[in-house]
């Protein structure tokens, strides 16, 4: 197993584990907002790692550039998507978890 293959394997494994954690988070977390915090962050990292593995594995210019584009794109769109969903949920009154300590946004957010 050459170092390159080792690195690819490690990256792939880590990536997969992060995605699994994201999936577990989405199931275990009590309310929407906590689930989102888990899934958007962990999943993006997981996918980025796995794509990096691919880049390391092939080491061809075409592949690396495309991986770079994909990772850049995911990093750009994931937060925006998460923001949009959270906003939509909060605005339509999806309940927060009972145990929430403080909701800084209440009263100060005017959707119109």
């Amino acid at each position: 197993m050459s170092p390159r293959e080792l690195l690819t394997a490690a990256l792939l494994a880590f990536g997969a584990i992060w995605i699994l954690i994201a999936a577990a988070g989405i199931v275990r977390m009590p309310d929407l907002y906590l689930r989102m915090s888990a899934s958007s962050k962990a999943a993006t990292l997981g996918a980025a790692l796995m794509l990096l593995a691919v880049a390391v594995h092939f080491q061809a210019l075409g592949v690396v550039s495309r991986v770079g584009a994909t990772v850049a794109f995911i990093l750009l769109t994931a937060p925006v998507a998460a923001h949009m969903i959270a906003r939509a949920a909060y605005v339509t009154g999806v309940p927060l978890w009972r145990g929430t300590m403080v909701d800084e946004l209440r009263g100060r957010y005017d959707p119109e």
């Binding site: 584009a69 794109f73 750009l76 769109t77 925006v80 923001h83 949009m84 906003r87 959707p111 119109e112």
Partner: peptide, 17 residues
């Protein structure tokens, strides 16, 4: 009520797309 964040993101994403 278009969200500001989305429109700015769109402005960058459009050329890429």
């Amino acid at each position: 009520m278009p969200s500001l964040i989305l429109s700015t993101a769109a402005r960058y994403l459009l050329p890429l797309l």
